[in-house]
Amino acid sequence: MQCAVIVVAAGRGSRTGGAVPKQYRVIGGESVLRRTLRLFAEHPGIDAVQVVIHPDDKDLFAQAGAGLPKLLAPIAGGADRQGSVKAGLDALARRAPDLVLVHDAARPFASPELVARAIAAAAEHGAAVPGVAVTDTVKLVDETGMVVETPERARLRAVQTPQAFRYWPLRMAHAKAHAAGAAGLTDDAAVMEWAGHKVAVFEGEADNLKLTHPADMARAERALRPPLNDVRTGTGFDVHAFGPGDHVMLGGIAIPFERGLDGHSDADVGLHALTDAVLGALCDGDIGAHFPPSDPQWKGATSDRFLAFAAERVRARGGIIAHLDLTLICEAPKVGPHRDAIRARIAEIVGMPLDRISVKATTTERLGFTGRREGIAAMASATVRLPEEDPQ
């Protein structure tokens, strides 16, 4: 039996935010729509893929669909989802497939097994939708927000796509609903029910997430992120001598003091040590290799730039900084009163939660150059998690 799929991609997806509609947002290095199209274009049970798009999105669609097989020329959608599906059904009239699936572009995690179940269900029942059991208790409320009924949870299903039908009955149901002005039918099962057809439910998938809100996009990114199994630790150490001045920079915070710190940049020993610790975990040289003191552009530079650079090197490799630990070694100034401000500033620079930043201070019991109040030292460690590289 010939089976086509209509992918509804004409919406604007304003609830997810972003500069482009959600179906064109990139997750895991690939647009949502391309991920969805690839599922159907590569599935052996699908013969043709008809995409319904917004007229303003032709260039975005061309990029999303580039090189994929089975894609038909896209068509413009209607004023709502119901109108867009009708347009897709009409566009398939010349092919007149036996079966048709209808899928939301913003569900990029459907599996090939779900598609196969949908095709089988359409052939067996004529109209079928994937559904998952509802785990929360559901309440019906009136216009004032008062509960009027508690449906039996065992009989409830949360319905997904792809929804699956015999082509001609679905097309006729949509045409009948359009002619009757029956608006507000939120899915194709509802159109079939309105037209008097029975609709079966087959097993859906809990991971078949629909991207609707910003939190959904964040969840999708996490789901596609490779496991960060390569755990590394780097260390850093730095020293700067006191010089003229009325404050010292420690951990990105200006601390009033009777002297300053000498250095080519702002001489922030804390951020310098942290930068070296992060770069060390990456096996990516040290602060001097990337920001040599012989280069005049770094004269007087703020050291937050150095640490932010190191953090970006981690992100560029698909990793995260899991923990930073900084120890400041000096007799004076007193670090304790500024500890929380330092932690907050470091968290801001690297984009990490505050509870993953540790700052401590100690003295050398008046021994050595720090004990003689000649300068400040800092040592740091950084724990970095990276995707494990394929040994091949």
Rank of each mutant, 00 (worst) to 15 (best):
V199R: 03
T150N: 00
A311C: 12
A322P: 00
K22M: 00
R153K: 15
A4D: 10
V129T: 10
G251C: 11
I46K: 03
K86R: 15
Y167K: 05
P256R: 12
A377Y: 07
R343G: 03
A73I: 00
A195L: 05
A175T: 08
G288P: 00
A66I: 00
V115F: 05
R12M: 14
L324G: 04
V148C: 09
L250Q: 04
D262F: 00
Q23L: 01
A73N: 14
L170Q: 08
A118I: 06
Q63A: 15
G319R: 02
A106Y: 01
G351V: 07
I349A: 04
A76H: 13
A378R: 06
V32A: 10
A91C: 09
G181T: 09
D188M: 04
P296W: 14
R315M: 08
Q297Y: 05
R232W: 11
E203V: 14
R232G: 11
E152Y: 13
A87D: 04
E113H: 09
Y167M: 06
V26S: 02
R373V: 11
E149C: 15
A310M: 09
A164G: 04
A116M: 09
Q392H: 14
T212Y: 05
L33R: 06
D295S: 14
C283I: 05
H272S: 13
A120D: 15
S358I: 06
V359N: 01
G131V: 12
D90R: 11
G245W: 02
G375A: 13
R222D: 11
G181H: 14
L114N: 00
Q63M: 03
P214H: 01
H240S: 08
M172Y: 07
P333R: 05
A311R: 06
G351P: 04
I46N: 04
T36E: 09
R15Q: 14
M146G: 08
V85C: 09
L156P: 07
L326E: 04
G300E: 13
A195E: 01
V269R: 02
P21C: 07
S14F: 05
K22I: 12
F202V: 06
H247L: 13
A19H: 07
V8G: 05
G252F: 08
P353E: 12
G184D: 07
A122G: 10
F242A: 03
G13L: 11
R372S: 14
G204R: 02
V52D: 03
L37R: 00
V248L: 08
V148K: 08
L274H: 05
V248T: 06
R171F: 09
G263N: 01
G65W: 02
T186M: 10
P387I: 15
L209E: 15
G88P: 10
H197G: 02
